[in-house]
């Protein structure tokens, strides 16, 4: 799916298992927290959890604004 989108629009893939993302052909990749809650962490307070989610989404926006030529994993 990610490849088909990338043919037309820039896309950032947020997913927990980076190698799978690499295998399916994503180019901009953000590693996330856990499979059942990629953008959350139920062990944290709702405020902390949202802050964590925001950090990851900001990282995704930064990835979209970064020129790349090959598969890149953005960890900060």
């Amino acid at each position: 799916m990610v490849k088909e989108i990338e043919r037309e629009l820039p896309v950032v893939h947020m997913c927990t298992i980076v190698p799978i993302s690499q295998t399916v052909g994503a180019n901009r990749i953000i590693p996330t927290i856990a499979i059942p809650h990629p953008l959350g962490d139920p062990s944290k307070t709702p405020e902390e959890e949202k802050a964590l989610r925001r950090k990851l989404v900001e990282r995704a926006l930064k990835a979209l604004q970064t020129e790349i030529t090959e598969q890149t994993v953005f960890t900060e």
Partner: peptide
């Protein structure tokens, strides 16, 4: 749309 965020579990 300009760009896409795709999330996976």
């Amino acid at each position: 749309v300009t760009a896409v965020i795709l999330t996976s579990t």
